[in-house]
Every structure is written in C-alpha cells, then in structure tokens.
C-alpha cells in the first residue's frame, strides 16, 4: 500500500505547530499503525529529519500510552481498539490519513503527537484509591462480593487511562475517565468508607484541571478502547450529588 500522511508537527509546547504531509510507500496491510509510523521514522532519521515523536509502549493495547487522533477519530475508526492495535488492513491503498495529537488544554502538547496527561494522575491522587496500607488487610474471603458487582466493577476498572475520552469529547471533558475509577471503587464493599468523599474530591480535581463539562454526548464511550460504559458517569454524578448534599 502507498499512503499520504498528514501529521501534526510541533517542536515543543511553545511552537504553534502545523500539519506536514509525508508519503509512505510499501506499507504491508499486516502492519500495525505504529509500525507504519516506525517505517516513516526510520526514513526520516536517515534523511537527517526529525522523526515524528509519539508515545507508545506495550503495543498490545493495555498500557494506555499510545493515542492519536486518526482521520478525526481518537485511536482511529476501528472500535474498541487502541492505536497500537489498529492494523493497516483497515485502510485503503492510496488513502490520505490525518494524524493529530489529543487536543485538550489539560493535555498540553509536549512534542508532535506526545501530550502530557499528568492531569489524570492528579485526579487519581485526589481520591482514586482505597486507603489501606500494606500488611493491614484482612483475609480476602472475609468480605464476599456479589459476582455481578465484581463484574461491573471490573468493567469500569478496565480503563487504561489513555485519554481518548477527553480527545473525543466535544467539551474536552474527562468525565468518563474519572467516573470509571469512581464507579470501580463505588461498586465494591472495600470502596464504601471513602465513597462520597472520593467522588467529591476527584470531580473537583477534574474541574480544577480545566477539563470541560459533560453534556452526555456519548462520544467518549464510543471511542473508548476498553468500552467503559456511559453509566459510570451517572454513577459518578449520583455519588457527587450525594456528597454535596451532605
């Protein structure tokens, strides 16, 4: 396959950035999207050009490090798939592909397609945990958990923190990310003691980071590589309202 790429290039946070067009030839349909970019970068290095910087690590869809907006869709149009798991067989020969970074004020561009997602860490710091120091835990079987609750909690806990939800949201909201953690811990008995304070602290931190508000457009869950369900946001809202009513 031969492709035309339009890639966002930005040398650093203070650079304005622009789209640059590249041709990539002899792409195999079995390549992953990132392997296709590897091919481009190998060439750019040898030509003395700056290769396109992008984040990636596990390349098996679980670490959450990779992420770019491909043809206007976070992680590309393939559903429930991270950028690293997207394969070139889903593109037409001769196609033009636009590649942009996650765009959100709380995710400033570091370079090219690399953004700073530390805002997510600070949201977790605000309360996305159960306060239980190592060594203090009771026997694991002392607290049974309904299978349904455990399964639902797992569905929420499967979030990889990639930020696609923010990138796709027309409001630049981080509600799905925040709600996933709140819901995971809300559904389990272990999460109950801190349930309301956690919801309040995390939501307030999310707002303080400068993410937009949620208008329930559902764009987030549609691009989420792990399919985090939208009702996590209802759960978050419920806990948050209760916390504020107290």
């Amino acid at each position: 396959m031969n492709l035309t790429l339009k890639v966002w290039r930005q040398s650093g946070p203070s650079d304005a950035g622009r789209m640059v067009t590249y041709r990539v030839e002899d792409v195999s349909p079995d390549m992953s999207f990132l392997e296709m970019l590897d091919v481009l970068n190998e060439r750019l290095i040898l030509e003395g050009d700056d290769p396109v910087a992008f984040d990636h690590d596990c390349r098996e869809g679980i670490c959450g490090m990779c992420g770019m907006v491909i043809n206007g869709v976070a992680h590309g149009e393939q559903r429930a798939t991270t950028t690293c798991q997207l394969h070139m067989r889903h593109f037409e020969d001769g196609a033009t592909i636009t590649i942009e970074p996650w765009r959100a004020a709380p995710f400033p561009v570091v370079k090219d397609l690399v953004v700073d997602r530390s805002a997510f860490d600070r949201v977790i710091q605000a309360g996305g945990f159960v306060s239980v120091p190592a060594g203090s835990a009771p026997d694991a079987h002392s607290i049974p958990v309904r299978k349904e609750d455990a399964d639902d909690a797992f569905d929420a806990a499967t979030c990889i923190g990639c930020g696609a939800c923010v990138a796709a949201c027309p409001n630049g909201s981080a509600s799905l990310f925040t709600a996933a953690k709140i819901t995971h811990l809300s559904l389990l008995p272990q999460g109950q003691p801190e349930r309301l304070s956690r919801a309040k602290a995390m939501v307030d931190q999310m707002d303080a980071e400068g993410f937009g508000g949620c208008t329930n457009t559902g764009e987030c869950t549609a691009v989420c590589p792990k399919g985090i369900p939208l009702d996590t946001i209802a759960q978050m809202n419920s806990d948050y309202l209760k916390a504020n009513a107290k």
Binding site: A134, A150, A153, L188
Partner: peptide, 8 residues
C-alpha cells in the same frame, strides 16, 4: 492486600 485495595 489486593482485595482490600479493591482489585476486582
């Protein structure tokens, strides 16, 4: 420890 942390 993991169960107490809420590992599902």
């Amino acid at each position: 420890q993991a169960v107490a942390q809420g590992v599902p």
